[in-house]
Design a protein around this nucleic acid. Structure first.
Lengths: 221, 221
DNA sequence: GCCGAGATTTAGGTTAACCTAAATAATTTC
DNA sequence: GAAATTATTTAGGTTAACCTAAATCTCGGC
């Protein structure tokens, strides 16, 4: 049974939403997939009935991946992240362009292609946004760093990763110099969820809103 | 109206079968597309009715591309050939592997990707099999060379291109050293469609069957 | 323990791209 | 030029993935 692009997308998104290990609900999935909730129910039912079963599903109580489903999700994520890195490193794509292109390529490349770009990149472990790349065997490192939002004034460290959803945000972060590996320090935080003042590298401090700090993860030292 | 992968394939194959300028018949198209003849009729009818019209069609009398259809076909072919060359040059794919991968990638890459690989390759004019790469504007050079089959004993020249359909044939040709740019000379030909003896580069002469010589094109000097 | 908001599922379509089998048109052969 | 062969089309289905609108659940708050 050949796995369709649509199914690969479902599995990938379920994996991402599962995160720690919770159940994923229909609406969240529908939103991320840009699809009506009813369509999600339909697809999920099929994935839970067909063999091999790719998801566990109980009506009204959310979905999780089976081992088989997770294996496929991790293959797709490996493709996605390798492609992102390759586009960035080998073809000079900017940070905010890679996601859209990878979204399409991830479903069509062969094992051969995967192996060759992985080799060309030196078997890399993280993608351009700092996310870990699963191995061919389906092993993935735990994502590192804690939300910038959660740091206290005075804490410092290095940017571990930034979330890769929103190209506009990525462009803004690039402008600020916030990318994996750059040094970052919290100068102070305004109370009541006000802006945070942050020093990036050796630039002068910047005020960042919650929208931004929620999507930056820091390895505190 | 977004053009589907299926439609892109139809247009590409119609272009290839049209060749000089003849009409393309349903059966040939069906064979090349691995689809039932009835399916071809259905698709062709839609392409001829929808606007913009992509093909000219008259029941029982074959199909040709409209200008709009040809433009799309040439975009797809440009993608295909650029990708083939990129896989070969940048990622070390062997000659016979590139076609299958390009077949899938050609439908999903962005303009950005097209531009970047074309730039990385130095705006190339021919693909690894010697076929001309259409320009971004949809201009394509006439394919060069004449069939090795049609050469007389004593004629010599350089391989211009080889047809790219059959991986097994491509592997065999690679073994023989027959690829674009290599020198080639007809030593003699047996009568009654018998094998042809050919000298490739400075190797000792080889006997080649019709199956092979039909798919090699030579620029006679 | 009920009520209602919000989440989820069911019911009933739609569309694109394919299929097989039967009917018809075109072409080749005698 | 009629018959036989081959090519093409029509008719009637199938499947995957989606949709909207109308039920039906679930759960937090009272």
């Amino acid at each position: 049974m050949e796995i369709s692009h649509a199914v690969e997308d479902y599995l990938k998104i379920i994996y991402e939403l599962q995160g720690a290990g919770g159940k994923v609900n229909t609406t969240a999935l529908a939103e991320r997939l840009n699809v009506a909730p009813a369509s999600v129910t339909g697809m999920i039912k099929k994935l839970a009935e067909d063999r091999p079963r790719l998801v566990n599903y109980e009506r009204h109580h959310g979905v999780t991946l089976t081992t088989a489903g997770e294996k496929i999700a991790l293959e797709v994520i490996r493709h996605h992240r390798l492609i992102e890195l390759y586009l960035h490193e080998a073809l000079g794509y900017s940070w905010d362009q890679v996601d859209a292109e990878a979204e399409k390529l991830e479903h069509v490349i062969s094992e051969e292609f995967e192996d060759r770009i992985a080799a060309a990149l030196g078997q890399p472990k993280i993608d351009p946004h700092g996310d870990p790349i699963p191995t061919k065997e389906g092993v993935i490192a735990a994502p590192t760093g804690e939300r910038l939002t959660d740091l206290a004034a005075g804490q410092r460290g290095r940017v571990a990763r930034v979330s890769d959803d929103d190209p506009a945000l990525l462009r803004y972060l690039a402008e600020l110099g916030i990318k994996p590996e750059t040094a970052i320090a919290v100068v102070d935080r305004s109370p009541f969820d006000g802006p945070m003042h942050v020093r990036v590298g050796n630039r002068s401090p910047q005020a960042l809103g919650r929208q931004v700090t929620d999507h930056v993860f820091v390895e505190v030292r």
